[in-house]
Structure formats: C-alpha cells, structure tokens
Design a protein around this nucleic acid. Structure first.
Length: 841
RNA sequence: GGGCGGAUAGCUCAGCGGUAGAGCGGCGCCUUUACACGGCGCGGGCCGGGGGUUCGAAUCCCUCUCCGCCCACCA
C-alpha cells in the first residue's frame, strides 16, 4: 500500500484479525483465501491495495489458552513477581499455578507471540498477500490506544454509560457477557407445580422450571384476560417455604397456554423477569452469587420479606452455598415434604441461554457494567446496513434480523484480566466509596493507559484504594470493542487524519457469516457512533466448510481438518483452488478431491506452459516480434476471439466478487486450449521455416499463455508466477505476474476479430470425430487415417477448408484421402463424417 | 413461532426463460515427441412433489415436503 496514491486508485480491505487461541482450521483458509483472490485481482488491475493483517490476541480466549498451555490462573491477591518464568514441563493433571494478574498477562503475551509466528508462517505459505509491514496485534499499544480513544469518544458523546443493573453473567468465568455472545441450547428440565396460598383464602398453582428461585419470587403474574385468575389480581399470594407475600399482577407477557398459565417472577430467571421487575419497581432478592452458588441471605430482613422468618431461614439453611443444580434438587425435597409440590416434576426439554463458550447456564446478576447505546440507534443501524452492498445480497437479512431482535445495549465490560482496560478511575470519598457517576478519564494523549497500574493525573499511586484517593476501573473491554475498530486501527483514526481519509471508509470487509452479529455489527455500530459513517462499501461473506455429514466444522465439535498436511500433500495452489471454486456465501462440503483437481490443473499449466514457451524460444518469439497483430490465421483469430470474451467475462465476474465464476470460465477455456487448440495448431507452430502462418500460431500461443497465466494468478499465484518468470517477467521489466497488468480486451486490439467465425468450431468438431474413430477402433491417436469424408453445409465447409491443413496434420490424415462434400447432415450435427483408418501405422 | 438459504447424474457442484452440463467415481480404450501427476471415448438425469404464467420453465410465481442456518422472554 502506497499512502501517496490517490484514494480513488486505492482498494482497502478490512481483514478479520483471527483469534490467536489455538490453531487455524481449513474454514479459515477458505474464507481468507476468498479475500486474497479479490486483493490479487485488484492489485493486478493497478489498484493501490491496502491489505493489512492483525492478530486478535486479547480477551478470554487468550486467557483460556494460556491456562491450558502453561497451567496458570490469575490471582488478584498475589503481587507481581518480576523474576517469575512460566514452566513448560507441567503434567496434564498438575493443579493450576496461581500467579499475579500482571505475570499472567505477560504469560499471555508470550504464548500469543508463539502462536502468531505459526499463524504467520501458514498465511505466508498459503500465499495470502498481506502487507506485513502493517501487521498489528490487538494487545499492542496502538490498537489499545484506538480502543481507548473509541471509549473516550463514546463517553463524551454519551453513547457509553455505566450502570448497576441485572446483566447476563457467566458463573464459571465470572464475567458479564453481551447478548451477541450468548446462544440457546436445548436442555433437559422439568416443570414443577408449586402451590401458593392466597391471602384472604384460596390458593394457586404456578408452574416453574426453576424452583430454586422460589426465594427470589417478587410477584405472581397471569394474563389479564385469563378467567381462571381474574379474581386474584390485586390480591397477595404467599410463597411456600419462605412465606413471602407477593402481589398477584396481570401482565400480557403471561401465556395462558403455558404451564398453569400463572407464573412467578423472580430476580432473575430470565430477561422477561428483568423487564417486569424494572417496570413494576419490585424489590431485588438476589439469591445467586457471582460464583453460581446460593448466597448467604437473611429471610425476614429486607428485602427478603417473610411472614414466617424462622421457617424461611430453616429452608434457606438447606440451600445456602449450593450450586444452582444442587439447590434445585434440594428444594424439590423440601417442597415435597412441605406439601407444596403438586404432583411430580414433569420432564421437558427447553432452550436455555448459555455464554457461547460457557458450560453452565447464564444467570442475571445485578452488577455495575459499561454499556454502549445501540437500542436507541436501531433504525439508524438498519439504515447503515442498507448502505452497505452485501455479497451475496441475502446476507443483509441476517444483519437486519439481528438488529431487529436486539433487546439490550452492548455490555462492553468484562471482569477479566487480559484485554484493553477502560481508561477510567473513580474518586473515593471519605468512607472509601467510589463515585461512579463522575469518573476520572484519561486524556487522549496519555493513551494507552492501564488504570490498574497507573494513577490518574493529579494523584499518586499511594492514594490507590485510600479514602479520598482513587481506584482504577478493574475491568477490561469486550474483545469486540477492540476488533470492531479494525478499520480505524488501520487508518490511525484521530491520530493521523490524512491517513484516515485515505483508508476510511474501506472498500471491502471479508468475513464468515456467523460473526455478522458480532464483528460486522459492532464495526457498523462504531463507525456510526464515531463518525456517522459506514465502515466499508462491500461486505463479502464466505460460507462455511461442512464435514461430510454436512455439519459445520468447528473446534468444539472435534471435526476440524487442519490445513498444514493439506498444503503438504496438495500444494498451496491446490488448496487455494479448492477455496476459489466455492461461491461466496455458500456452505461447502469439504472435499479433498477438489484439491487433487487443483493440483492437476497446476501440473497442466506447467506442461502446457513449458510446451508453448519451448515453441516461442525456438523461434525467438517475444511480445515485440510476435504481437497480437500477427494473429491472422482463421483458427487463431477464432481462438483469440474466444480469449477476448473470456477476459471480459472473468473481469466482470471479479468486479462483482464472483471469483468462482471467473475461475470456472478460465479453467474451461484453458482445458479447451490444451485439448483442442494446442493439438490442432501444433504442427503449424512446429514448422521449421518461418511463415505468416507460423508467426500467427506463435503469436496466439504467446497471447493465450500470457492471458491464461494472469487470469489464473489470483487463484494459483505460485505456479502462475513461476511459469511467468520463465519467459515473460523479463519483458515486463522483471516484475512478478502479480504486479499486473490484469489482461484487458485492449490487448486484442490489433487482431481482425471481425473475421472470427466458425473455423475453430469446425476444426474441433472434425478432430473429435477423428479421435473418436481411433478410440473405438482401439488404435492410438497417432494412427494414420487413410480416408476422411466430410459432408456439411457450404458455410461450414468453407470454414473447415481454412483450417483443414492443421486438422489433417493433427489427425495424421492422408491429404489425398480427404473429401468434402455439400449436404446438411440429417442428425443436426455440423458435419457428417466417415473415417477410415489406415491398415498399418 | 419468525426469517434466510438449499434440494440438478452414484458423489461434489455449475447453469437460473430457449434442444440437460462439468469434475470425480464407473466402464472401455490409447505408452502419443507438452503432460501416464497424462490422453481419447462410452454410459448415466420425469433438474424434490404438485399447481400456475409462457409459444417455450431446471430457470419466473404459488404451494407442499425434506435438509441446513440465523433469530425469538426460555415461566
């Protein structure tokens, strides 16, 4: 990328920074190759291509990887030890080693730099044409500075805010997570029917899958139109075991068809509970702690109201300290003994929300978190999505689907260690309580900062944690908060306005469809909130690689294919060929056969190239001595016309990001070139004495080879450049084929293409007949033909006559035995033929 | 429950209004001086089912059935 060139000559690609948390699989190779095909095409067309690469090496995946590789666990109680070194010789069953957070972060950087070296080697081997001088790591200073600048800008615009509120929480990683990182999993569960008494007489039965939250019940809800419960609205129910009075409320979110039609609202069973609780200003009875265990709470004291505190406390004593799962089993026993359980639990399967990397269901916990406003911008974000061109177009529906379904602002804070910290401190009052409403912000010029290690301006480190002093924000940002700035990281947003103007908005975002709701969406969010812009003009979405059972390949499923051995076995070009054959957005079944095909194509290119170049060298032919204007023979003119059409088609396809169509057209034409044109023209090209006919043949061979090699160059960069170097690099000033220029129809300007007609088709037709006759006679293709009779319409015969010497020579036909006669064949074919083989070779 | 894709030869896929295609696999040949990591040829399909539009439908419309994915408050 040359920053000096004009923006309109520049093509900018927003490469996905892969997560460096293990190994790249064949699915990565697939979609990263797709972007490279476009990059190479645009580069050959003369565009100033900005094609950066970065590694996403912060965040939770990194921490998990370090935990596995080095057996470490961060412990905030430990102090930094500058002499500590990770041990490599740990056994699998050794307990995790506790280290200080700072030591842990250093270990993360170490492991990541090792992984990154492996990634880079693979990408280079695959021939991905990144600008390695622009390499970045999301954990490095510059991306951290951009991420923190982004936060400060959002805060200044009031688009980022912190709030103490119920948030989705993973109890294993003990961190908040965002809506985009959750997934539903079908889980076994059970309806438990619980009997509540109603004050003033009567009772009701609620159905719940989460009886362990009974103590957190703050209301009972039924549909306003539900006749069964209409009389109860406004009354008070009393929970079993805990004897808490709770209001009976009408709300449309209760479904009369589900369970008993009346349900308990708890703090918090699900998102609906959160919304109802908020709308009704109900008390907060938080039972589950950050570790997923039942907290120590005191019934009979606010907010845990109870009309029989002694029995409530006795019940809770049985549950406190238990995990959700254990507590559920226990409370069923208690309810049964109490007589509050109606019937037995009825097993069901139902969807439960999980953190996508988690192993236990998410809980809603009230905590203080940072959020970025997205709900209020929903319509604008939909509009931004419509400004982007999607390839394939239907992928926009996934974006719109997601944006329409958003129900929470973006929670960007994570209670983790490895990541970009918030550039924020909080004053402590005289009692040592933090003031979250008026945070101390870092100044832009001091970024990146780590408030966990550095004091804010005007304070000394000694005041950390002291009344009247300060504390640093302990959290790190969601990893997407950084990677959503990948365009701005490349463009040096706010730091280098000239560079930013050169690179932003970008031209193309290549990625896979499963991260439309995360990376793509968040990048659109950031570009909109910061500058009211779209981040790129085109979103280019690759499909997935499916295993032979048509399941997505993913590490968690254990069905991944790793690329290294495929590169060894089939070559980088063959693997790229496999990726290039798949259309954008189409999920593709993994098929190693296609790689074999790619290798076969590369081999064919070498052989055909070697043959053509041999002819050119014998005659001393160069683009100067044998220009396209020397192409005059009817066979050659016809073939050149086909080539010109191919160039136009392949170029148009590439411009539409349809690299697979370009490759397919090129490949078909190339096999035709090898099987037909090359065979038919061979003898004329071989001729010992120079003639216009031979000159035409050589000029065509040269043009064809130069065109084919360049059309193949994006998909098969290694073999095409190798062959190019044998003959054409010197005349191109020693430049690689990949510097271009891309073939253009102008290169055909000197040829009298208006004379193109049916000669080539006629020649192929007759050659096929001759070959067929020899094959069915079980003779070799060099076997001579004694007699050839051709009958056809006069225009076709005329076309055939112009190429007859080539056809007869290629087919080893005795000229004296050849007769052409007029008369259309009856079967609809161009010609009727009779072929009689010689009796001896 | 809503949305988006897909269903074409045994397999993997192109084609997306004008007489059904490729590669692989199968079968049968050919050691030919670019290539046996090759070449030539042959078989093989009610283009998921049913309606419609059209002179004409694999291709456009409707509908159904399967498959995959995304999304949805999950009591």
């Amino acid at each position: 990328w040359d920053p000096a060139r004009r923006r309109d000559e520049t093509f900018v690609i927003d490469t996905p920074p892969p997560t460096v948390s293990g190994s790249l699989h064949i699915g990565h190779v697939f979609s990263y190759t797709h972007a490279d095909l476009i990059a190479r095409f645009q580069r050959m067309r003369g565009k100033n291509v900005a094609f950066p690469i970065g590694w996403d090496d912060n965040g939770l995946p990194t921490e998990r990887r370090v935990q596995i590789v080095l057996g470490l666990r961060p412990n905030t109680k430990l102090a930094y030890d500058p002499h500590w070194q990770p041990r490599r010789d740990k056994k699998a069953d050794e307990p995790l080693e506790d280290v200080s957070p700072q030591n842990f972060i250093e270990a993360c950087k170490l492991v990541m730099s090792e992984d990154e070296a492996v990634f880079e080697a693979l990408w280079r081997r695959l021939g991905l044409s990144y600008d390695w001088t622009q390499l970045y790591r999301t954990i490095a200073d510059h991306p951290r500075r951009i991420a923190q600048l982004s936060f400060l800008d959002l805060y200044a615009k009031r688009e980022a805010y912190s709030k103490f509120a119920p948030t989705m929480w993973d109890v294993d990683d003990q961190t908040a997570v965002a809506q985009a990182e959750t997934e539903d999993r079908e889980q076994p569960g059970a309806y438990h029917d619980l009997r509540f008494s109603v004050l003033g007489g009567g009772e009701l039965t609620i159905s719940t899958t989460r009886p362990e939250l009974l103590g957190a019940c703050v209301a009972v809800v039924a549909h306003p139109d539900d006749e069964r419960y209409r009389a109860l609205f406004g009354k008070t129910a009393r929970t079993p075991l805990f004897h808490a009075p709770v209001p009976i409320v009408a709300s449309a979110h209760a479904d009369p068809e589900k369970g008993t039609g009346i349900l308990m609202v708890c703090t918090f069973g699900d998102q609906a509970d959160v919304e109802f609780w908020r709308a009704q200003s109900l008390p907060l009875r938080q039972l589950i702690g950050p570790d997923g265990r039942m907290r120590r709470v005191v019934f009979g004291e606010a907010p845990f109201a109870s009309e029989d505190a002694a029995r409530a406390r006795a019940a809770w004593a049985e549950l406190e300290g238990k995990t959700v799962k254990q507590a559920r089993a226990k409370i069923v026993e208690l309810l049964r003994a109490d007589g509050a359980l109606v019937g037995e639990p009825r097993a069901i399967t139902h969807p439960v929300k999980f953190y996508e990397r988690g192993s236990r269901p998410l809980e809603f916990l009230p905590t203080r978190q940072w959020f970025v406003r997205i709900l209020v911008h929903r319509d604008a974000l939909l509009e931004q999505g419509r400004k982007i061109e999607w390839h394939p177009a239907h992928m926009r529906a996934r974006y719109e689907n997601w944006v329409q379904g958003l129900n929470q602002d973006w929670c960007v804070s994570r209670q983790r260690f490895s990541g970009v910290p918030f550039p924020v401190w909080y004053r402590l009052d005289a009692q040592g309580r933090p003031d979250h409403e008026r945070p101390l912000l870092a100044r832009a010029e001091e970024l990146p900062v780590d408030p966990r290690l550095q004091p804010p301006t005007g304070y000394g480190e000694a005041q950390r944690g002291q009344p009247g002093g300060f504390i640093g924000d302990a959290d790190v940002m969601d990893t997407w908060a950084t990677s959503s700035m990948s365009p701005q990281i490349m463009s040096h947003w706010t730091l280098d306005p000239a560079r930013h103007a050169q690179l932003f908005p970008m031209d193309m975002r290549p990625q896979a469809h499963e991260i439309i709701r995360t990376w793509l969406f968040y990048t659109v969010v950031k570009a909109y909130l910061h500058e009211r812009e779209i981040p790129w003009k085109h979103a280019v979405i690759s499909g997935w690689i499916l295993d032979p059972d048509r399941k997505k390949m993913s590490k968690s499923k254990g069905n991944v294919t790793t690329p290294a051995h495929l590169l060894d076995q089939h070559s980088a070009d063959a693997v790229r060929y496999w990726a290039a054959r798949a259309r954008l957005g189409v999920d593709t079944t993994f098929d190693e056969q296609v790689m074999k095909l790619g290798k076969r194509l590369a081999t064919k290119l070498v052989n055909a190239g070697r043959f053509a170049i041999l002819q050119l060298e014998r005659a001393g032919a160069t683009p100067e001595t044998h220009p396209a204007s020397a192409i005059s023979h009817p066979l050659d003119v016809d073939f050149a016309a086909r080539l010109r059409e191919l160039v136009a088609r392949a170029t148009a396809s590439f411009e539409e990001f349809e690299y697979a169509a370009a490759l397919q057209a090129t490949e078909e034409a190339f096999w035709d070139f090898c099987d037909n044109y090359l065979e038919i023209v061979k003898v004329r090209a071989y001729a010992e004495s120079p003639s216009p006919e031979q000159r035409s043949a050589l000029a065509t061979l040269q043009l064809a080879l130069r065109v084919f090699l360049r059309l193949f160059a994006p998909a098969l960069p290694f073999v095409s450049d190798e062959i190019w170097s044998w003959r054409f690099a010197a005349s191109a000033g020693g430049r690689s084929i990949h510097s271009g220029p891309w073939p253009s129809v102008e290169e055909f300007a000197g040829i009298s293409l208006e004379r193109a007609g049916r000669a080539y088709a006629a020649a192929c037709e007759i050659s096929t007949r001759i070959r067929g006759a020899k094959t069915s006679a079980k003779k070799s293709l060099r076997w001579p033909v004694a007699r050839l009779e051709v009958r056809g319409a006069e225009p076709d015969l005329a076309a055939l006559r112009t190429v007859l010497p080539d056809v007869l020579a290629a087919g080893v036909v005795d000229t004296a035995g050849c007769r052409l006669s007029a008369g259309a064949p009856s079967d609809g074919a161009i010609f009727a033929t009779e072929v009689e083989l010689a009796t001896a070779s």
